[in-house]
Simulated scan of single mutants.
Amino acid sequence: MAIKRVLLKLSGESLSYDKVSISVEALKRTVSEIKTVAGKNIQLAVVIGAGNIWRGCGKFIERVTADKMGMLATVMNSLALSDALKKAGLKTKVFSASGVTGFAEIFNRDKAINALNKGYTVVFAGGTGNPFFTTDTTAALRAAEIGADILLKATQVDGVYSADPKKDKNAVRYNSLTFQEALDKKLKIMDQEAFSLCRESNISISVFDFYKNGNLKKILSGKKIGTVITAGGK
């Protein structure tokens, strides 16, 4: 199946470098990778986390409040990414699940799909709009809503392993898996809600090393990079 519409899930760390929450150097590198694929017969949407800005402050701040702060932090990251993409010559739109008047449009599925069809790189901010849900779940939800062909989970590892490769030298990397195989092996690919939603919506997941230059373009050019999880394991 040819990939046309893609949801790229980035961590907040993709914008951070050397303890700077939003680093110009990291931002430029992330934009450079995105520019190699955006607008080139690929409709690209992005969900970005907020771990570079906010991690919840343990149990000191109540969970609902902490999650709301995290959602606001994703808006900050989304605005930074969108502005940098514009500086690189790409058309972008930011949609937020929560009302942030003057900063981003409220998420609307039809408007988001229309923007993708017009060649915009769409950035989804504000999480799902509700506490208790991760940005992985946000990515899966938005991927399902826009009818994405694949969800690309950008990480710092080169795929899914049978165990933590940093702790187990015998850990095996999988090139491909079915959703059922991943469940049977109890592999932690995404949180349960996100994984289940992708499975139910038949959206393939690709886990890859985003920090190796050129990997994003290689995946969308059909190269076998990282680990792909599909309904049929192809």
Rank of each mutant, 00 (worst) to 15 (best):
S221H: 10
I219L: 13
T155I: 07
A194R: 05
K9V: 01
L220G: 05
F95T: 00
G12H: 10
K4M: 09
S16W: 02
L81K: 00
G233T: 15
G232W: 11
S206P: 14
S204F: 05
K186L: 11
F124P: 01
G214K: 10
S82K: 08
L197P: 12
N117M: 00
V157T: 11
D191I: 10
A144Q: 02
V100H: 10
V6P: 03
P131C: 12
N202I: 07
G99E: 11
F210K: 13
N41S: 15
I3C: 02
S201M: 09
S32D: 15
Q156D: 15
K224G: 06
K93V: 13
A140Y: 03
K87P: 04
S201E: 13
E33D: 07
W54P: 15
D184K: 08
T227Y: 06
I22T: 07
A80E: 03
L85W: 02
A73L: 04
R173L: 12
D83K: 08
L220H: 10
Y161L: 06
T227N: 06
M190S: 12
I146C: 00
Q180H: 14
K223N: 10
L10D: 02
L15C: 09
K59Y: 11
V31S: 05
N108L: 07
K87V: 15
L220A: 10
D164S: 10
L220K: 07
S78E: 00
A148Y: 03
Y174F: 14
S21N: 08
R55F: 06
G56K: 03
G222P: 13
A194S: 14
A182H: 06
Q180Y: 12
K9W: 01
K35M: 12
G126E: 05
Y211L: 08
S14R: 01
F210Y: 13
K87T: 06
N117F: 00
F103G: 07
I34R: 03
K167V: 13
Y120C: 00
L220W: 09
A171Q: 14
S78P: 11
Q156N: 15
A45P: 01
V160T: 06
L7W: 04
E33L: 06
N170G: 15
L27N: 01
A112K: 00
A112D: 01
S162G: 05
D191L: 09
I48E: 00
A45V: 02
V46G: 00
D184R: 08
S21Q: 07
L216E: 05
M190D: 15
D168Q: 08
A97Q: 11
S11V: 03
L187W: 07
Q180K: 14
L44R: 03
K153W: 02
Q156T: 09
A143L: 09
G56M: 10
K166D: 08
S96M: 08
Q156K: 15
A163H: 10
V160G: 09
N202F: 14
N130V: 03
G159W: 05
T138I: 01
V207W: 10
S32M: 04
A45S: 13
T65I: 12
Q180L: 09
F107P: 01
A144F: 00
I225L: 13
V122M: 01
F208S: 14
M1Y: 04
I225D: 09
L187C: 11
A66Q: 08
V100T: 13
P131Y: 06
N170A: 07
E181D: 11
G126H: 02
I203E: 03
M76I: 14
K86S: 12
I61N: 09
V94G: 07
S221F: 04
L216V: 12
A231D: 14
